[in-house]
Design a protein around this nucleic acid. Sequence first.
DNA 1: TCTGTTATTGCAAACTTTTTGCATTAGTAT
DNA 2: ATACTAATGCAAAAAGTTTGCAATAACAGA
Lengths: 144, 144
Amino acid sequence: MLHKHTSRVSPADVLRAHGFRVTTGRTKLLELLARAGTPLSIQKLHTLLRGTQDQATLYRTLTDLAAAGIVQRADMNTGTAHFEYTPGREHHHHVVCTDCGTVEDIDECALDELEHKITKRAKKFVHISSHNLEFFGQCVGCSR
Amino acid sequence: MLHKHTSRVSPADVLRAHGFRVTTGRTKLLELLARAGTPLSIQKLHTLLRGTQDQATLYRTLTDLAAAGIVQRADMNTGTAHFEYTPGREHHHHVVCTDCGTVEDIDECALDELEHKITKRAKKFVHISSHNLEFFGQCVGCSR
DNA sequence: TCTGTTATTGCAAACTTTTTGCATTAGTAT
DNA sequence: ATACTAATGCAAAAAGTTTGCAATAACAGA
């Protein structure tokens, strides 16, 4: 069995499929994100990549990748943007520890139904395209 | 009938009830937020208060008020924090226009059930204390 | 494989948002 | 009325993100 976060499609293929040039920087970045399987901040990525890539490049790259749907921006109330590798993964959300930042995935998103209901009721909107949802709490380790 | 966003309890009373000093600045701020009935950014608040209050003060005040549960921080993907007056209002979320920022309230939050289910399933968390949820789309005006 | 084109990158600087230190002001309890 | 201390304004710093530009490297076509 494949690892939970291992996609059958390589980062390089994903990049090509979206018309991006396959650079070593992007490949490394996506491999790292795919391996992590959890949202990481620019700062963390910069560190984990050992400064190989400039922060400006990371901002630009991740913005582009997010626009293409290859990564997803997640707001964890930390003041910095986090990004998660999404190819091969189902749409999902997270529980974030307000103390240490630990993240746990939630595999179920029961929002489609609600989203549909809302769309019908909304006065100012005809279509809802996306949503941000994160849960917050104290993880087991931090609650003692 | 009272206006939808008019609370029977005055901002001054709310402040006192939480042990805050009732200053003119805070009173004006809360009255403005209560009247607006929608999340506002610090910059907007600063303008609407005609510069009466320093931005540093607004940041400090709103952080304190949020910690006390008098206002609620809402992240609308604009890069700046927004705050909403909550006393006398039910827990709710929003649909935000990705183009012009127009906000519509969603009166229903069907997340309690999901939150409960998640709490039981979660491995790293015993308790979930809050969640952030915002929907995004194009409003009628912007979709033409 | 070589070559030209152009996306991508690094570096430095600018910009935006938020936080902090400190002296002054203004609420509040007595 | 007075003393105590939270709250505020101002200025500066910190943190996060964006931008301009020259140098580099990926890709398509020969």
